[in-house]
């Protein structure tokens, strides 16, 4: 039976990557669930403790708020860039695309460091404002939610722009032209004809940014200065400072479940396959 034999050889190609992923990634992540239910003792004690803790509640609220504001900020700023790139062809368009993609290749650590240099107490922004006589004492731009949000939007922006660009490139100009020639103003034809066609790209971008922001660690940890404790940082706190593996793992499980729920709910509105599996 040649067909069966053929399938076996294709699976031989698939299996090496798949098996190391299952053994060394999926199993360790499932191990977190085991810890959450067994340390320090078997049962749901960690989850009870978690549900009763005000600090945990605050941390979840901060996490969702930061992720939501970051998503909205990235969508608005990203939409403007993606629209200009795909609708106004000028000699500078390729440069625009290159400049949008460039920050993608610069590590998040370095981009966060840049923001620390800019927003710190004696950072460049405060220095410049004091020098110009506009303020007397340095403003608090960092180690609070504002600083985290600015840097998060900066880091996440390319993730919002790229899916919107892919989507807008596939939109034919004839519908807007038709609307215009039928007498619609530029703004009306944008709102009623163009914008609805871009919704799939907007939703893909929103999903990517939101999911990545929920679990983000580096930028909130560096710009938040311990005052904007998002869940990821809260987990490392529990484990590194208090060696509280049980609670840390329970929080991890909660974060995983929250991420999964966001994906499941968004699957109704977003083409997950196109957003995640078939990214260009």
């Amino acid at each position: 039976m040649p067909r069966v034999h053929e399938k076996v050889s294709y699976w031989m190609l698939v299996l090496p990557a798949l098996s190391i992923m299952v053994c060394f990634y999926i199993l360790p992540v499932l191990g977190i669930w085991e810890i959450a239910f067994t340390e320090p003792e078997t049962g749901v004690g960690n989850f009870v403790k978690m549900a009763g803790s005000n600090a945990v509640k605050t941390s979840f609220v901060i996490t969702f708020r930061v992720a939501a504001i970051t998503t909205v900020g990235c969508l608005i700023l990203g939409y403007i860039v993606a629209y200009a790139i795909s609708n106004f062809a000028t000699r500078l368009t390729p440069l625009m695309v290159a400049l949008v993609i460039l920050p993608f290749w610069v590590s998040v650590l370095i981009r966060s460091f840049s923001w620390i240099v800019l927003l710190g107490r004696s950072g460049l922004v405060n220095d410049a404002l004091i020098h110009a006589g506009m303020i007397e004492r340095p403003l608090r731009l960092m180690h609070n939610e504002l600083g985290v949000l600015i840097a998060m939007i900066h880091v996440m922006l390319p993730f919002a722009v790229l899916p919107m660009l892919t989507n807008m490139r596939g939109i034919s100009g004839i519908y807007v032209q038709a609307a215009r020639s039928l007498g619609a103003s530029e703004w009306t034809s944008f709102r009623q004809v163009y914008f609805p066609q871009t919704l799939p790209g907007v939703l893909s971008g929103a999903l990517l940014v939101f999911v990545l922001s929920l679990g983000f660690f580096v930028t909130p940890a560096l710009l938040g200065g311990g005052r904007v404790l998002m869940i990821s940082e809260y987990i490392t706190y529990q484990i590194q400072e208090f060696l509280n593996w049980g609670l840390g793992s329970a929080l991890s499980v909660a974060l995983l479940v929250a991420t999964a729920l966001v994906l499941l709910i968004s699957a109704r509105f977003v083409n997950l396959r196109a957003t995640l599996l078939e990214r260009k």
Binding site: I26, F217, S232, I239, L255, L256
Partner: peptide, 18 residues
């Protein structure tokens, strides 16, 4: 294919604990 892309979706701190 979905199994292979899980590292994109799992938060970095969670996978690092694992």
């Amino acid at each position: 294919r979905w199994v292979l892309i899980t590292p994109i979706l799992v938060p970095p701190v969670v996978q690092s604990l694992g």
